[in-house]
Amino acid sequence: MEIQRQVPVEIFSRKDLEKALQRIKKSIWVFHLNTGSCNGCDIEIIDVLTPWFDVERFGIKLVASPRHADVVLLTGPITIKTFPRLVKALRAVPRPRLVLAIGSCAVGGNIWFNSYATLGGFPNVIDKLNELGIVIDKIVYVPGCPARPEAIIYGVAVMLGLVEQKTRYKKVKA
């Protein structure tokens, strides 16, 4: 069982991407996309916008249309019924297409990773999206069930390169 690293198809070069990230750093517009999640992560996303965490202090704003979005906040394991809508919404997002996959569902399919009705998380659909001509320039995975508001903020920081990610693949001998 080999773990595969996903290499994004580079049209936006690394340099371009960094430049673009630099530009949106102080005002990131996010679009929230629920692909069949239980609502747990979704209410935590709203929580991030309300007084206790107030991400508007970083210029983060929730927008109504994917056409205006810099970052897509994706929750849920991607059910088969929502996939076509997901494609439609993601295609509308301008390049660089940045996705923050929030919660265990979006990252690894959570408890329904092997159900007949879901696709088991965002990593499983990336090649399908590529097949449809949708390239995702940067993805950050935020585990958590539900991801706590702080974890979401941390994820955004990793996305923008403000902090270095902490987790690395580890192999230890027992």
Binding site: H32, N34, A64, P84, R85
Partner: peptide, 21 residues
């Protein structure tokens, strides 16, 4: 679904606030 012409802005059943599809 993408080819459907009825909805021009492809937002489908998604909403800005918190909601389910």
């Amino acid at each position: 679904v993408e080819a459907e012409a009825a909805i021009i802005i492809p937002i489908g059943p998604y909403h800005p606030a918190l909601h389910e599809p």
